[in-house]
């Protein structure tokens, strides 16, 4: 926590999970601000993907056009990156993408709560991808799935070393996958709050507000890019499980 004279800035307070209706303890079932913003994300996704497409127009309306754009974008991404076999898992990838995108963007509304800035959320997402891909790989390829750790194009003497490195990097995947998303979101929002705190000092407030505007624009970019990065990495991991060795 930063402290400048009498100025109190608590950039991390925005991430506190608290119950919606009373000040009691947070049980697993308690409706909290997390619940509220998760469900808002669900509603927003429903509004775009279901209400927006309800006319089923051949010549799309604006909202239908956006929904089709997202559909086509992720569908092509899965097909290009994970291969033809990966298209079966397109609904899961699209679920991940839409959830992260909407959680990120909704989190940029002032006074809102950013669910994807919490490690708890991103770890669940990343572990779901990791476990899903690993189980899928073994289910589809059996023991042959382990072959991806054995770099057959390298000299024989190097292969055990490379296998070790590959295995370590494989298990680091969920860590980097989850921390990248939560870290980006948390850092951006904390910086915004710090500048917001400075904005209450008359002397520096024009600078602080200018900086907030700039960082807000940057955060909007980050919100979309991190959703894209998480999704495309999911597709890359999926390729290990379902793709052909020779692509």
């Amino acid at each position: 926590m930063a402290e400048t004279g009498g100025l109190q800035i608590h950039p991390m307070d925005q991430f506190i999970v608290k119950p919606l209706f009373n000040d009691g303890a947070v049980h697993w079932y308690t409706p909290t601000n997390v619940t509220l913003w998760l469900l808002l994300a669900v509603l927003a996704i429903g509004a775009l993907m279901v209400l927006g497409t309800r006319r089923r127009a051949i010549v799309p309306t604006r909202s239908q056009s956006v929904a089709e754009l997202i559909y086509g974008f992720i569908h092509d991404m899965v097909e290009d990156v994970a291969g033809h076999e990966g298209v079966k898992y397109f609904p899961y990838v699209l679920t991940l993408f839409l959830f992260i995108l909407f959680a990120n963007v909704l989190g940029l509304i002032p006074m809102s709560f950013t669910t994807t800035s919490h490690v708890a959320v991103t770890v669940v997402l990343a572990l779901a991808v990791f476990l899903g891909v690993t189980l899928l790989g073994f289910a589809r390829k059996g023991v042959g799935f382990l072959g991806m750790f054995w770099v057959s194009s390298a000299p024989l003497a190097l292969r055990p070393v490379l296998a070790l490195i590959e295995i370590i990097s494989y298990f680091v995947r969920p860590v980097s996958h989850s921390i990248r998303l939560a870290g980006n979101l948390m850092a951006g929002h904390a910086v915004l709050k710090v500048f917001a705190g400075f904005a209450s000092v008359a002397l520096v407030s024009p600078v602080a507000i200018g900086a907030m505007t700039a960082i807000y624009a940057l955060e909007l970019l980050v919100a979309v890019i991190q959703a894209y990065v998480f999704t495309i990495l999911t597709c890359v991991y999926l390729k290990d499980a379902v793709g052909d060795a020779h692509h």
Binding site: H27, V34, V42, A120
Partner: peptide, 13 residues
Amino acid sequence: TWPNQIFWLLVAL
């Protein structure tokens, strides 16, 4: 707060 977050996240997903 993790159980709470994870529970509601799974519901949302």
